[in-house]
Amino acid sequence: MSNTNNSCAAGGGAIYGLGIFGAWVYFWQQADGFWHYVWAIIQGLFWPAFMVYDVFQTLN
């Protein structure tokens, strides 16, 4: 019997999921038109990539 511990992975997924919902709320409040709402959904899904990109832009 394997003695693996997947609780850490599940906890990380839960935190990422909460981050997605929080990003959706934030970006949804900033949107003011149909395509802005569509973009808000996309940004909510990929918010870590946008955040890392902005950090690298700042460090450049």
Rank of each mutant, 00 (worst) to 15 (best):
H36E: 15
N60H: 12
Y26N: 04
G33M: 05
A14T: 03
F56G: 00
F21G: 11
V38K: 03
F34E: 02
M1N: 06
A23V: 03
H36N: 12
T58I: 09
V52Q: 05
I20R: 04
W47P: 01
F46W: 06
A31V: 03
G11R: 07
S7G: 01
N6R: 06
Y26A: 07
Y53V: 08
T58A: 13
V52S: 04
V55I: 15
Q57H: 11
G44H: 00
N3G: 07
G13M: 05
D54N: 11
W35R: 01
I41H: 10
I15D: 03
A49K: 08
M51S: 12
Q30N: 10
G12M: 10
L45M: 13
F46N: 00
A10R: 14
L59A: 13
S2C: 00
G17R: 07
A10E: 13
Y26M: 04
F46E: 02
L59T: 06
W24M: 15
V25F: 14
A49G: 07
N5Y: 05
W39Y: 15
T4S: 04
G33K: 12
T58N: 10
T4L: 07
G11F: 11
W28F: 14
I20Q: 07
T4N: 05
D32I: 03
I20L: 09
V38C: 06
D54K: 11
V25G: 00
T58F: 15
I42D: 09
T58C: 06
G33I: 02
N6K: 05
W47I: 01
G19L: 04
G22D: 01
G44N: 00
N5D: 13
C8P: 00
G22V: 04
M51K: 06
S7N: 09
W35M: 06
A14S: 02
Y37E: 02
G44A: 08
Y37D: 01
G17V: 06
Q57I: 13
A14D: 01
T4R: 06
S2D: 13
G11S: 08
G11V: 03
P48T: 02
Y26F: 15
A31T: 01
L59F: 14
F56L: 15
A40G: 05
V52Y: 07
G22E: 03
G22P: 01
N3C: 05
Q43R: 12
N5Q: 02
D32V: 02
G22R: 01
G11E: 07
F34W: 09
M1P: 07
Q29Y: 08
D32N: 12
W24H: 10
Y53H: 11
W35S: 03
N60Y: 12
